[in-house]
Each structure stands twice: as structure tokens, then as C-alpha cells.
Write a protein that binds this DNA or RNA. Structure first.
Length: 649
RNA sequence: GGGCCCGUAGCUCAGCAUGGAUAGAGUGCCUGCCUUCUAAGCAGGUGGUCGUGGGAUCGAAGCCCACCGGGCCCGCCA
């Protein structure tokens, strides 16, 4: 899809302001290529845009910023008329140059842009169609997702939505470690400790909450069980062994339950990559021969070295080495990640065929790798960029992988680790698990000890809370609608709480806080949208202002000059700048917080400005146009966050 | 011991990349606002030596250095 850069927004005004300033300083001081900013000020008293140009010039011109600001402004006033969007320019004694925009013009071009682009409003062509692989979720298939995994999934899925919106060709992968230690743990439970296979619980919950936790407890009392685990792990390496088949059977049952949770959270994937198949495909052997041909790995032949007989890689940090192949010839954990990463970037040829694994709720097919000849040949790997979403504790290993890949790919930075901090429990929530944490502010979750909040459980709690609230407001509504709405609210609450925070901050999860449906949250965003929808819905019956039953944007509706109206127009008009910023920084909180602020600005408008109760019919039409433009922008933004729009709640 | 990250209001966090105007939200607590488009809302009040000290700068929450407090990583585990 070809999209042109969306320009008819506040971006246009910024461009004009820059052109005006450039012309002025070139004309008056003969200066070019001065670095300065034009942006929106944080307070409205300083106008619609400001520039720090005078501060930057003061170093060059050796004059005070406020003097320069005055000079620049007076020159600008002479050449201003040809810049249509700039209405006033004014120096501030602090040294800023402040602009007032022609709000009629900004309103007109913004409404035109929203109307003509519709669902694509805010989309800009950053990706130029480049292929990007995004890997996220990748939960060991021996347990259910907890809220920590949810942060991973929500971040990855939002990155996917954002990149797709900015014209990247995105493929989403979910890596299934079906041959690792954690799977071996539950196999030990089933095969040697007589845990029943069937349970009344959801199977992933049963494996994680009961089998996995209890087996780990038993290791402490009976260390000989660790020997059993080693045997299981070894047996699973043989793809056709009885244990390997059994493990695949168990893990696929867990995986299917996990996927239900993922889909419930509105995530989707293009392909499942099974670790057992990466090993069985002999991708590792090919990676190994590539590595051996380079000089970053070597076999340690010093008998006095602790790594004697191992294949080691220089890990980047001075003197630090990492074992890839043990002296007994087996590959380590990190070694398994290298061929996979090489496969992603197309450094290794694709050994896989692909089979349809499932049809997903959004109607797309979920594929899975296959080693059988019967599968389809698809173009999955070989991307321009590969983004791997894994928490920050894996940074060191991810850096090693990146360093190794840079040896085989001339274009650095194609492999990107999207690191994020973990989710921890607040002190009061930790107390619910009887954890003593003294005066510390949070406690880490621990899978093996059963200390975590399951994603499904949390969503269920949010669902019931939301159900009560929706039911109270819509006593006559039918059950199906009530539950559907409550579910949307639960997902919105969950997703927003995982997105709003900076990637490198631990999320301190507090159960009580999470269930409080007030303030900065997903449902606040949905509520603003629902309020706007109700205005449009009621308007459609007002024949005097709406023709054809549906509100349309009237781009001549430019007489909106109340403070709350202008604030809303400007908020709508800055959407594409936020999209660009977020896509470039891969930091979803930026767009999440924008969405919240857009909702907040609408709520202020809603409280103070009558739309349907306004007497002046022209004003009603104009405000309806604005409300309509808001719902389109909001809907586009919410869909990037994976938050459902609700017409009523 | 080495590396990475965090420290801003009682609590949870924006702002820091690219220094600049009176440091902002949410929550908590207090006070108002539903005969008017949904009060899951809005308005107001309360609340901050921006961890500490130094440095460069006309100017620092932001940049540099040191220190203090907290978290994570550093295995022939995964």
C-alpha cells in the first residue's frame, strides 16, 4: 500500500513556522542550517507553537535571546502574509518566539485530512513496505500466562499494530520452547510422580499451578528426581522417542490453552516456531559451520582452562567468553538462539515447511513450522529487521546474539532486542501471597513457587467488576451484550495498564488499584469514546442538521473558537506526530498516553460545550463535525493500543 | 568484583533523548457539580529541598563526575 506522508495537520503549521524563521534568519543574519525546535508549548498562554531559535542564535550572535527574539519577530512580520497558517508571531521576554495560528485554517485542513483519510488518518509511511519480524509472548508451554507474560504480549502486539499502521510488512512470531527444562519438569511429574493427566482446571493452569510448582518442591526433598529430569531432557532430544512424543502431546495441549488467553487479549500471530523443530531441522549445524569459519568462536584447547574442550564465543565484554558447545558436544541455551536469529534475518536458508495451525479470532491463519514435506512453502523469514520482545534480564545474552549477527550481516542494527522491565507485585498485593517483604516496595513473581497472578484470573476479576458497573448503568440490556462489553473493558484495562509505563520501569502491580475503574485507564478512554458516540447517535435523528441519518464531517465547519474546541482540534491534529514518534522510538507508552490525553481533552469539551443543546444550527453542525473527527481519531488510536471502541457502556 | 537499569507529591507514575517560561498527571484525603448529549465524568483544594554533593552553562529534574539507596544480570542451567 502506498501512502503519502500525512501533512495536513499541525505538522503543516510547524513546517510553515520553520520556513518563516529560516527565511527571516537567512535574510537578516545570512545564517543557514541553524538547529532549533518548533513545537507546541505546554501552556496555552504561550500560544499555539513556540520556537527556541533565539536561544540557539544567542551563542552565535553573542546577543541576549530576548533581543534576538524581538528582531526575528519584527522581520517575520513583513514576510508573514505568504504563510497562511501563521497568524501572529510574538517575542517573549524570556527569549521564546511564540506563534498564534489561524485556527480556522488549522480546523479546515485537519477536518479535511480526517475526512479524506478515515481509518488511515494518522498513518504515515515510515516503513516503505519493509519486512519486519516481531517475536513476542514465547511463554514456555508448561504453564499459564501470568501478568508478567501479559506485558510482553501487549508490548509486542502493540508494536505489531503500530508498525503495520506505518507501512511495515509485519510478521509476528511466537517461539515455543517445547524441549526445554521447564517442559521436562512437568513430564517428570506426569511420568514419574503419577500426576493425573486429566484435571477439572484449564490445562495450562493445572500444569503451571499444580504440577510444575509441586515437582519443583519435590526436587528439594528428593534430589534423585533431578536425575530423572536429566533423562527426560536427553530423551526429548530424540524427536521420535516415546518421551518426546509424550512431551509434544502435553505441550500442545498447554499451548492451545495459552493461545486462548492470547486471543482473549486480542493478540494474533502469523507463525509458531517450535524449538524442537529448530533442533531437528539441523539449522544449528549450519549455523555452527558458519561460526567456525569466522574468528569470533574458537575451541578452547588450553587444558588448564575451565572451558577446556568447549566451543566458546567472545562475548563483547572485555575478556568474557560464553560457552556455545559443551565439552560433551551438546549445545547450550544461547547456542539454540543463534540459528533462530540467523534464520530470522535470512542469513540461513529456510528449512521449514508450514502447516495451518489454527484460524484466529481475527480471521487470519496461524501457521506453524513443520518438518514434513507436505507443508506449504511460505516466505516467513529473511526480514529487513527482527524485533525480539524479551524482558531486560535477557539483555546480556541478546547483546551477544546481536554481536554475532553483526559479523554475518553488513547492516548493523537489523536485529533489535526490545527490552522491558518485569511486572512485580506491590507490597499489599504481595501480602496476599503471604510474602514477607519488610519495607521494600515490591516483590518479584516466581513461577516455580506459584507466586504470580494468572492472566485469565485477573481478566475474570476485571470482567466481573466491569459487568457490575455496566449492568448498573444499563439494567435492561441483554446478558450477551453485558458480557461482551464487560470483556472489552477488562481487556482495555489490562492492556492500558501494561502500556502506559516506560519500558525500563518495573510495573508495580497492585490488585486493588488495577480493579479500580477510575482515572487514567483503559476504561476512561473507552468512556470518552462512548460519550461521543452517543452524541452522534442522537444527532442522527435530528433531521435539521443531519442529512441521510449519519453525521458527516463538514469541512467548512471552521467557526469553532472556544478554548475547549480549539484544544480538541489541536489534539486531533497532532496524532500523526505522535504516531511517528512512537514508531521511531518503539516506545508504546507515548501513544498510550496520547490516547489518554485525547480522551481527557474530549471530556473537558463534553462537560462545557453543548452540542445538541446548542441553539445555533450552524454551530451544532460544526460541533458535530468535530465530535465525528474525534471519534475517527480516537478509534484509530485505540485500535493501535488494542482497545475496543464501545458505542455505549 | 564487573555490567545494565531505577530514584520526581503519602502511593503509582509523566517530563529527561534534543537544557530554557510558574515542575505535571492519576490515586488517596477534603469541597463543590446530575429536571440539561452517560457523574466510569468535571471543577477546586491538599500535597514536591526532582536521592545527596560537586562540575560545565547566562540557565539543570534533564548534561558530566562522585557518592548513597534499590532492582536485575554475570553457570559446560534454561
Amino acid at each position: 500500500m502506498i501512502r503519502e506522508l500525512s501533512r495536513m495537520t499541525i505538522r503543516r503549521a510547524i513546517d510553515e513556522a520553520r520556513a518563516l524563521l529560516d527565511e527571516a534568519i537567512s535574510h537578516n543574519y545570512g545564517l543557514k542550517d541553524i538547529a532549533y525546535d518548533v513545537a507546541e508549548p505546554k501552556e496555552e498562554q504561550y500560544g499555539d507553537l513556540y520556537s527556541n531559535l533565539a536561544f540557539q542564535l544567542s551563542k552565535v550572535l553573542r546577543k541576549s535571546p530576548s533581543m534576538i527574539a524581538e528582531e526575528v519577530c519584527s522581520i517575520c512580520r513583513d514576510i508573514m502574509p505568504k504563510y497562511r497558517m501563521i497568524k501572529e508571531i510574538e517575542p517573549h521576554r524570556a527569549g521564546y518566539i511564540n506563534f498564534r495560528l489561524d485556527m480556522h485554517e488549522l480546523t479546515r485542513i485537519t477536518l479535511e485530512e480526517v475526512k479524506s483519510k478515515g481509518k488511515a488518518y494518522g498513518s504515515i509511511d515510515i516503513g516503505k513496505g519493509r519486512r519486519v519480524l516481531v517475536e513476542h509472548t514465547s511463554v514456555n508451554p508448561n504453564k499459564a500466562l501470568h501478568i508478567g507474560h501479559v506485558r510482553n504480549l501487549v508490548l509486542g502486539d502493540t508494536i505489531y499494530r503500530l508498525l503495520r499502521f506505518t507501512n511495515h510488512n509485519v510478521i509476528v512470531l511466537n517461539y515455543i520452547d517445547d524441549s526445554g527444562l521447564q517442559v521436562a519438569d512437568i513430564v517428570v511429574g506426569f511420568r514419574f510422580l503419577n500426576f493425573p493427566i486429566e484435571s477439572s482446571k484449564k490445562f495450562d493452569h493445572y500444569c503451571g499451578d499444580d504440577v510444575y510448582v509441586k515437582v519443583n518442591e519435590m526436587y528439594e526433598h528428593d534430589p534423585s528426581l533431578l536425575e530423572r529430569r536429566r533423562e527426560v531432557l536427553k530423551a526429548m532430544e530424540d524427536y521420535n522417542s516415546d518421551i518426546a512424543r509424550f512431551a509434544r502431546d502435553i505441550t500442545s495441549r498447554v499451548l492451545n490453552e495459552q493461545l486462548r488467553t492470547c486471543w482473549r487479549l486480542d493478540a494474533r500471530y502469523d507463525c509458531l516456531n517450535f524449538e524442537s523443530q529448530i533442533i531437528a531441522s539441523r539449522l544449528w549445524d549450519r549455523a555452527l559451520s558458519l561460526l567456525k569459519a569466522s574468528d569470533i568462536v574458537r575451541v578452547d584447547d588450553d587444558p588448564s582452562s575451565k572451558y577446556h574442550g568447549c566451543l566458546v564465543v567472545k562475548a563483547g565484554i572485555e575478556g568474557e567468553e560464553k560457552v556455545l558447545v559443551r565439552s560433551d558436544g551438546t549445545a547450550t541455551y544461547i547456542a539454540k538462539d543463534i540459528p533462530y536469529a540467523m534464520w530470522k534475518l535470512g542469513i540461513l536458508e529456510d528449512p521449514f515447511k508450514y502447516v495451518r495451525y489454527a484460524e484466529q479470532p481475527d480471521g487470519t491463519v496461524l501457521w506453524a513450522t513443520s518438518l514434513h514435506d507436505g507443508g506449504a512453502s511460505l516466505h516467513v523469514n529473511g526480514a529487513d529487521m527482527a524485533i525480539t520482545v524479551i524482558d531486560v534480564r535477557q539483555s546480556r545474552l541478546q547483546n551477544i546474539i546481536m554481536k554475532i549477527l553483526s559479523m554475518f550481516s553488513n547492516d548493523n542494527g537489523r536485529y533489535r532486542h526490545l527490552a522491558y522491565e518485569v511486572v512485580a507485585l506491590s507490597s499489599s498485593t504481595a501480602r496476599l501471597f503471604n510474602i514477607e517483604i519488610g519495607d521494600r516496595r515490591f516483590a518479584h513473581m516466581k513461577g516455580r513457587e506459584g507466586i504470580y497472578i494468572n492472566a485469565d484470573d485477573m481478566l475474570d476479576r476485571l470482567h466481573s467488576k466491569a459487568y457490575e458497573e455496566v449492568k448498573a448503568r444499563n439494567p435492561e440490556a441483554d446478558e450477551q451484550w453485558l458480557h461482551r462489553t464487560a470483556e472489552s473493558i477488562a481487556i482495555a484495562a489490562m492492556r492500558y495498564s501494561m502500556l502506559k509505563q516506560d519500558l525500563d520501569k518495573i510495573i508495580t502491580f497492585d490488585l486493588e488499584d488495577a480493579l479500580n475503574l477510575q482515572g487514567e485507564s483503559g476504561q476512561y478512554i473507552q468512556y470518552a469514546y462512548a460519550r461521543a458516540s452517543r452524541i452522534l447517535e442522537r444527532a442522527s435523528s435530528l433531521v435539521a442538521v443531519v442529512v441521510g441519518g449519519e453525521v458527516d464531517i463538514d469541512t467548512s465547519s471552521t467557526h469553532l473558537l472556544c478554548r475547549e474546541e480549539m484544544a480538541l482540534i489541536k489534539a486531533i491534529a497532532r496524532f500523526d506526530l505522535i504516531v511517528e514518534d512512537t514508531a521511531k522510538s518503539l516506545s508504546p507508552k507515548t501513544i498510550a498516553r496520547y490516547c489518554y490525553s485525547l480522551a481527557m481533552i474530549f471530556n473537558e469539551f463534553y462537560e462545557k460545550i453543548p452540542v445538541l443543546h446548542e441553539q445555533d444550527t450552524n454551530l451544532v453542525k460544526a460541533r458535530l463535525s468535530l465530535v465525528k473527527a474525534f471519534t475517527i481519531t480516537m478509534s484509530n488510536c485505540m485500535s493501535l493500543l488494542g482497545i475496543d471502541v464501545l458505542e455505549r457502556m
